[in-house]
Amino acid sequence: MTVPLDLPDSARRAKPEAGLAGMGGTIQGRSLGQIAWLRLRRDRVALAGGLVILVLVLVAIFAPLVVRLLGHPPTEFHEDLIDPSLQVARGPRGGISWDFLFGLEPVNGRDLFSRVVYGARISLLIAFLATLLSMAIGTTMGIVAGYFGGWIDTVISRLMDLFLAFPLLLFAIALVGVIPDHGFGLSGNTLRVAMLVVIIGFFGWPYIGRIIRGQTLSLREREFVDAARSLGARSPYIIVRELLPNLVAPILVYTTLLIPTNVLFEAALSFLGVGVQPPTPTWGGMLSEASRLYTIAPNFMIFPGLAIFVTVLAFNLLGDGLRDALDPRAR
């Protein structure tokens, strides 16, 4: 329903039962996928979002290459370009030049462009993996609750209520604090990333779970499910072969819409100081440091902030487009 951050996300709180009713694949002739693709192709805004995402992902994957072409290594100091008493780049505009596209980080003179580029790696990695986790748990729980009903549904629904009643951001911060710094055969940043994925992903599943449960509830009363059942199909078969294919659309839409929320969640955690260890750059972490220095080095704040904004916006645009394309009733 509501997002743990003090910022809203209309996607998550749309009443799932209302929002996607009738999305269950009753259309004959062209497959849902084909129709959706036709619609999506006409939606230039969504395509632009998709394109931006593609570029971001490529930039993240090929960050070393991008940085070699356009910047300096992200951890390399350029203290000679920093005014020692003022602690910021010498000259105007925070050191923005052809050599340093986004200027220099105060104090140590690192290349902000490279750091923003490398920041995309952590942000996207955590957001994708956490979303996958939420999706896996949420889908499983949602289908199980919706399909079996009865006490199973009650238990899972209460569990979802419970999760939604937790002040999640608070919890996430506290949890990161008490978890040891090596374990599960992992250590250092690998463990930190894994932990952030687990925490963000684990807290995200009820949002998807509720939606899938609602969809499953309506699907299981449909004729084709009855038909399968009367033919003697067992529950696992029905769930995997009959229900799941019909749930692909909402899963896809809400997964896409969960990614930007998780990008924001990761940024918020880093902003509050519980992200990965330095010198690995993250957008939230950069903003957190910039919050002390933005009055004298505005570029330190603006570029990581814009990076978050562009990423989240792109996913939101694509997600909206997907929803419109997959939902026959949408405008």
Binding site: S85, L86, Q87, V107, I296
Partner: peptide
């Protein structure tokens, strides 16, 4: 703090 230090010394 660093921000004010920069302003004052500059």
């Amino acid at each position: 703090q660093p921000a004010a230090q920069g302003r004052v010394l500059g």
